[in-house]
Amino acid sequence: MIKLILPKAIEQELKKELIVAGTQEIGGVLLGEHVSEGVFRISDFTIQRSGGTVVSFIRHIHQSLKNHLTDFFNKTKCNYTKFNYLGEWHSHPSFELTPSIRDRQTMWQIVNDPTVGANFVMLLLVKRNEGEVEGSVSIFVPGNPMILGDLIREEVE
């Protein structure tokens, strides 16, 4: 089972963004660290506040995303084996934390895009539940069915 570690500081940032967004879907890109075999930790993420409605989120590639990725890779000294793009995240404030057909199609397009160059991509779906962040992780690997991952909360930074 693939595990995605959600550090407390990132969880708190997500929580703030989910409160501001309310019933609108928001999302972005996940950047992270390969910790050990099958274990990844979110190191950074982007936030796209536009493009979401009550029932959908449409990912947009902006120059700011490219700049964010460049900054992340420079900060991690371009150590792509340890630090890299993990995938995408978005909120499902009004729905179950299960990827929709559109979510799955988008993730398959990303993982099969040779310009992305990913061996796999993760989709983290989040929502607020009784004031806390609830999440699910799905992994997309070319030539394989979607795999459910494990979201692990990291309490200590």
Rank of each mutant, 00 (worst) to 15 (best):
T53F: 01
V54N: 07
V55C: 01
V55D: 07
V55Q: 00
V55R: 02
V55E: 03
S56F: 00
F57V: 03
F57C: 03
F57S: 01
I58L: 08
I58Y: 05
I58K: 12
R59N: 06
R59F: 15
R59H: 14
R59Q: 05
H60G: 08
I61C: 08
I61P: 03
H62I: 04
H62V: 09
Q63L: 10
Q63H: 05
Q63W: 02
Q63P: 04
Q63T: 05
S64P: 04
S64R: 15
L65G: 00
L65I: 12
L65R: 10
K66Q: 15
N67W: 06
N67I: 14
H68F: 15
L69A: 13
L69K: 05
L69F: 10
T70C: 10
T70E: 11
T70L: 14
D71P: 00
D71G: 00
D71H: 07
F72S: 03
F72T: 04
F73K: 00
N74S: 08
N74G: 01
K75F: 11
K75I: 08
K75M: 07
K77R: 13
K77P: 00
K77W: 04
C78M: 00
C78D: 03
N79T: 03
Y80Q: 09
Y80P: 00
Y80M: 15
T81N: 09
T81K: 13
K82F: 07
F83Q: 03
F83N: 12
F83Y: 15
N84T: 12
N84V: 03
N84S: 14
Y85A: 06
L86N: 04
L86V: 11
L86M: 13
G87R: 01
G87V: 04
E88K: 05
W89Y: 08
W89C: 08
H90P: 13
H90F: 11
H90R: 15
H90M: 06
S91Q: 07
S91P: 14
H92L: 00
H92E: 09
P93I: 03
P93K: 02
S94G: 11
S94R: 08
F95C: 08
E96H: 10
E96G: 09
E96K: 11
L97Y: 12
T98A: 08
P99I: 09
P99Y: 02
P99D: 04
P99S: 09
S100P: 06
S100A: 11
S100N: 12
I101T: 14
I101P: 06
R102V: 12
D103N: 12
